[in-house]
């Protein structure tokens, strides 16, 4: 069933891709124009995904609710890191990331917090001080 749904999804995406791709046009200098290649890719993609809907292959075993909840939690932490990296600065944001992901992955929370507390300043020192990649120690929430 999952393969069928994925086939439908890819079919829809390829159809939308072709719908938007058809509108691009250039008037001069280019024989083929910017819209032909999307057709060259989109048509076989639609055909192939359609065959996956009709003749699916393979079975997928999705994780149970508990594991899926952990995956969603991990995703939320990753996204949170992306949004908070600038406001908080690298060490604080990475502390949250390491402690959070470590706990979600099954580490003891206290140990994960200690790991984060050690590793986040260590990584900052490694990248910013030793290797010369500029990473803000404090984000703009603290400096403004």
């Amino acid at each position: 069933m999952s393969v069928r749904i994925a086939g439908v999804a890819v079919f829809m995406i390829a159809a939308l891709y072709m719908y938007f791709g058809k509108q691009y046009s250039a008037d001069f200098g280019d024989v083929l124009g910017p819209s032909v290649f999307p057709m060259v890719v989109g048509i076989p993609a639609m055909l192939l995904s359609a065959t996956l809907v009709v003749f699916p292959s393979g079975e997928v075993s999705w994780p149970d609710r508990g594991h899926m909840a952990r995956q969603l939690l991990a995703l939320a932490i990753l996204l949170g890191y992306a949004f908070l990296l600038r406001p908080l600065g690298f060490p604080l944001a990475s502390f949250g990331l390491i402690a959070g992901i470590g706990t979600v992955l099954g580490g003891a929370p206290l140990k994960a917090v200690i790991l984060g507390a050690i590793m986040s300043p260590a990584l900052w020192a490694l990248f910013d001080q030793v290797l010369g990649l500029p990473l803000a120690f404090f984000g703009y929430w603290f400096t403004q």
Binding site: L78, Y81, L97, I98, G102, L105, A112, L123
Partner: peptide, 10 residues
């Protein structure tokens, strides 16, 4: 793994 993967993510 729980200690390694968060660092990989960072």
């Amino acid at each position: 793994t729980w200690a390694l993967m968060p660092i990989v993510a960072a």
